[in-house]
């Protein structure tokens, strides 16, 4: 890590917030989608693929958070 002292600490807090908050966001999104997807799949198993695609859409936000965290920790 190139940053030192207080700056390094702030970057670490920032990284934590980036992953944590996006994680909460993704979780809230997936909660609804997942419940609906499981419900729909009990009706018709053949929609697994479509259900999975919907299921993972909110998850992308967490990946963005992770990228920001990694940049904050390693690339700054």
């Amino acid at each position: 890590m190139a940053l030192e002292g207080e700056a390094a600490g702030l970057a670490a807090i920032g990284a934590g917030l980036a992953v944590g908050l996006t994680g909460i966001g993704a979780g809230m999104g997936e909660k609804d989608v997942g419940a609906a997807a499981v419900g729909a799949m009990t009706e018709d198993r053949s929609i697994f693929g479509t259900a999975m695609i919907f299921m993972v859409i909110p998850e992308t936000i967490v990946i963005f958070g992770l990228v920001i965290a990694i940049i904050a920790l390693f690339a700054l």
């Binding site: 992308t60 990946i63 963005f64 992770l66 990228v67 990694i70």
Partner: peptide, 12 residues
């Protein structure tokens, strides 16, 4: 952009 960044999960 979202799609491309989505592949960072490979590393993550």
């Amino acid at each position: 952009i979202g799609m491309i960044l989505s592949y960072t999960r490979l590393a993550a």
